[in-house]
Write a protein that binds this DNA or RNA. Structure first.
Length: 800
RNA sequence: GCAGGAGUGGCGGAAUGGCAGACGCAUCAGACUCAAAAUCUGACGAGGGUGACCUUGUGUGGGUUCAAGUCCCAUCUCCUGCACCA
């Protein structure tokens, strides 16, 4: 059969769609499989080959599951709120709705051309008001349960995009969207109390199947540490200053204190501070730096001693100086630390520069050179002297400070609460009303969805105000509580909102009574397997886990964790080995590949190009190699023979079924395809193949290259869709050949090979190996010290 | 600095402690062709030998083992994430 991909791909895509064979069935008796891929942001540029690779893994698994008899939910949708669309709207004067619809149509067309087996009846769009109604509903639930709060704070602000960014969106001090420098700005910010769920997010990781590095990254991000809060008294003032430390055992070594430049204590006691000028100068200098710059200046410690305030070490009673320095952050712990220069390198550097005492309390290092943070015997530490075990010293100290009433054990998280508002148009309106008398009032549930008003101008207002602030008809409203005139919140939610629960909506996408029917949620959840990118591990995945834990706590969903298993795809790099980017001109358009080589070739190539989870450069010639392979496969139909000789292929087939079945489960797509290529070479080597064998081959390749395989199935007289045929089974006993070639080593060096009966006993194998002419001549006159046989692999003779 | 991962032909990459380089690409030679493309056959880590073969070879240096790409110790390089987190 000639492989005319142009003709057959369109044909089968139409047939699949008309027959609706990829639709998930609600209320089925079959076991369920919920495969999820990260839904795309429908940008104007259209799809990227990276999307194809990202979706291909679960596309293959989902197709295999259907053949294995599962009821499969494999949905797709669009995460369509976001800045690029809004910026394009500003530039062209086109409404974001229009742009979004166009882009979604484009993506849909592209996805269909690749032949993905998505259930197209369940497509969702986060910008659809019937969808964001429920995003707002979840927000109100969070509000109701005290997990939403408003605070004036220094925030990461992008002057170019004119929006507030979360820490996650401004990693490295750069705006995640436009890559300009982020500055600190004081603003009213809506926060979601994700820190309330820090422990649950940490604990939940123990019950899910995520790759180790993904778990580790989330653990680091949550950043739990255990330690103690200790109060230091300020000399002559009726004031306690609380610090957080992970090393309460070193309390005897505290020789100074440092507080963050923004610490409120400074303003409170401004009249007592003698060098307020110097302090103010230092503070304004710090304010100019971005947080990123502050954290980068690792080497040179800066700071100013507060003249006029002294603290008391509560455990020794010694008076110690207090400094301000920007190596202490207001945002972590209490914004104040105890300085233990002998056992903390940062404190050591600070003490050296500012002349503070250095008292050794743990033996083992050389504190004339650097701080010592290892273990050792406690000295100069009163009741702790002689302790050698860190855990015990900490426990003993905690006991003491609690008895003295000066502190207590505690935990801290690096994770911060989630800044949840953006001053933008193209996002979900935050359903909140500001009333002069009642304060912050939630929009009543029955008024949802709170729709985005029609606007002509999408430019953000002065000072980065939301474009919605300019729409009087939107802003002006009445307070639901007291009925007086009130104003609506004009900020919208961040892009991460809609994607934090979308997998629940796929389960029941058209429900107007609930975000999804509880019975259906019970059947389909959790997501069995979720594939996506590494870049979402500390944002989307954490956020959605947070929302899902919350929904579990209020009884909306039946599992605490949304994703039972997570996998990661590696990047596709440009042919030059660099990350694909428009500016480098190394971007490959997947539709070009579909046009030139066919969807099956594209699908096969992205899975064959290398280790699925590793970054691999694109290679046009290898694409051609995959096309050649598929052409050879379609050529099988011209080689069909019922000759008994085709039985010679039996073992090869059973081996291949076994290997492909297990490799696909382990996402080793490259070796699964390699096994099919090897089998293809075997078939061509024999020159004939039975009809049944061709059909088995087609089934194995079907999840990867479904169009050509359906065609082979039809041409060879198969009935119905190949995509719905049962997955091939292998017989373990038939996966081994009657004879095996094994290597023969002498003193660990390969000296030849012999053919043995596969089930031969050890002694028989040794006899055959010794009888081999070459081995015999090499061992002549030598003494056999040891003989080793690894079944089916190798023989090793140790001789002297 | 901390955590995780990776270093294998010209390239992408395979190898439950057991014949290193599967499979694919590129390259070379041959067949077919007037010719080219396509296709088919063969060769293809390095060094040596007319040859059967020999030596050597998985970042580097040690070690364990009958046997090491794989395990252990040390070391270098690269990637990813976090990072003055008290």
């Amino acid at each position: 059969m000639k492989h005319n991909f142009r003709k057959i791909e369109g044909k089968w895509q139409k047939k699949w769609e008309n027959a609706g064979i990829f639709k998930a069935v609600d209320g089925s008796d079959k076991p369920k499989f919920y495969g999820l891929v990260e839904f795309p942001y429908p940008s104007g540029a259209g799809m990227h080959v990276g999307h194809i690779k990202a979706y291909s893994s679960l596309e293959v698994i989902s197709r295999k599951r259907r053949m294995e008899g599962y009821n499969v939910l494999f949905p797709i949708g669009f995460d369509a709120f976001g800045l690029p669309t809004e910026n394009y709207a500003i530039k062209t004067g086109t409404h974001p709705r229009v742009i979004t619809d166009e882009n979604i149509a484009k993506f849909t067309n592209q996805l269909k051309k690749v032949g993905f087996s998505f259930d197209w009846d369940r497509v969702i769009d986060t910008t659809d008001e019937d969808y964001y109604k429920w995003t707002q509903w979840i927000f109100l639930k969070l509000f109701e349960h005290g997990l939403v709060f408003r605070s004036k704070a220094l925030v990461n602000y992008c002057p170019s995009c004119k929006v507030v960014l979360s820490n996650e969106d401004s990693q490295g001090g750069k705006c995640d969207i436009c890559h300009s420098d982020v500055v600190q700005k004081s603003k009213d910010v809506w926060y979601l109390r994700i820190t309330e769920y820090a422990d649950k997010l940490l604990e939940g990781l123990e019950h899910v199947d995520y790759p180790a590095n993904v778990k580790q990254q989330q653990v680091n991000w949550i950043g739990k540490s255990t330690g103690a809060f200790v109060n230091f008294t300020l000399e002559g003032l009726n004031e306690q200053m609380e610090i957080y430390t992970t090393r309460p055992d070193t309390l005897f070594g505290v020789t100074f204190m440092v507080i963050a430049p923004e610490h409120p204590l400074i303003d409170k006691y401004a009249d007592r501070i003698k060098n307020m000028d110097a302090i103010e100068a230092y503070r304004s200098e710090c304010a100019k730096k971005t947080e990123f710059e502050r954290t980068q200046l690792v080497k040179d410690k800066t700071g100013v001693k507060i003249d006029g305030i002294e603290a008391v070490n509560p455990i020794t009673g010694n008076k110690i100086p207090v400094f301000i320095a920007d190596y202490v952050m207001m945002g972590y712990g209490t914004g104040a630390i105890m300085g233990v220069p002998a056992h903390d390198q940062r404190d050591y550097e600070f003490a050296k520069k500012f002349g503070a005492d250095i008292i050794e309390v743990i033996k083992g290092g050389d504190i004339s050179v650097e701080a010592y943070s290892g273990d050792g015997e406690m000295v100069n530490s009163g009741f702790l002297n002689g302790y050698t075990n860190k855990k015990e010293s900490i426990a003993r100290m905690l006991e003491e400070i609690e008895k003295m009433g000066i502190g207590h054990a505690g935990v801290q998280f690096k994770m911060k609460d989630w800044a949840f508002n953006r001053q933008r148009y193209w996002g979900e309106p935050i359903p909140i009303i500001h009333c002069e008398d009642c304060g912050v009032v939630p929009v009543p549930y029955e008024e949802l969805p709170l729709r985005l008003p029609k606007v002509e101008n999408f430019e953000p207002g002065a000072e980065g105000e939301s474009p919605l602030a300019k729409i009087e008809s939107f802003v002006n409203c009445t307070c639901p509580k007291c009925g007086k005139k009130a104003r609506r919140e004009t900020d919208t939610m961040p892009q991460w909102a809609g994607s934090s629960w979308y997998f629940l909506r796929y389960i029941d996408p058209h429900n107007d009574q609930a975000l999804a029917d509880p019975e259906k949620l019970k059947y389909w959840m959790p997501v069995d397997w979720y594939n996506g990118g590494m870049e979402h591990v500390t944002r989307h995945v954490i956020y959605s886990r947070f929302w899902h834990h919350f929904l579990y706590d209020i009884g909306v969903v039946n599992t605490p964790e949304p994703y039972a298993k997570r996998s990661i795809q590696g990047l596709i790099l440009g042919p030059d080995g660099d990350k694909m980017s428009k500016s480098k001109g190394n971007v490959v358009d997947p539709l070009d590949i579909v046009e030139d080589y066919g969807a099956d070739t594209l699908r096969t190539y992205v899975l064959f190009m290398g280790d699925y989870s590793a970054a691999t450069p694109w290679n046009d010639n290898s694409v051609k190699g995959c096309k050649r392979f598929l052409e050879r496969v379609s050529g099988f139909t011209d080689m069909i023979s019922e000759d008994k000789e085709t039985r010679k292929l039996e073992t090869a087939f059973h081996k291949t079924i076994k290997k492909v079945s297990s490799d696909l489960e382990e996402m080793k797509f490259n070796t699964a395809i390699a096994a099919l290529m090897t089998l293809t070479n075997d078939i061509y080597g024999l020159g004939k193949v039975s009809k049944e064998q061709v059909q088995t081959f087609a089934k194995l390749l079907c999840p990867i290259a479904p169009h050509v395989c359906e065609e082979i199935w039809e041409v060879t007289g198969g009935e119905g869709f190949l995509s719905l045929q049962p997955w091939p089974q292998y017989d373990e006993s038939k996966t081994v050949d009657a004879q095996t070639e094994i290597g023969v080593q002498i003193n660990g060096k390969l000296r030849g090979t012999v053919v043995i009966p596969t089930n031969a006993e050890k002694e028989e194998v040794f006899a055959i190996a010794r009888a081999d002419a070459r081995i015999a001549s090499l061992t002549e006159g030598k003494t056999f010290v040891k003989e080793i046989y690894v079944p089916g692999r190798v023989v090793n003779f140790v001789v002297k």
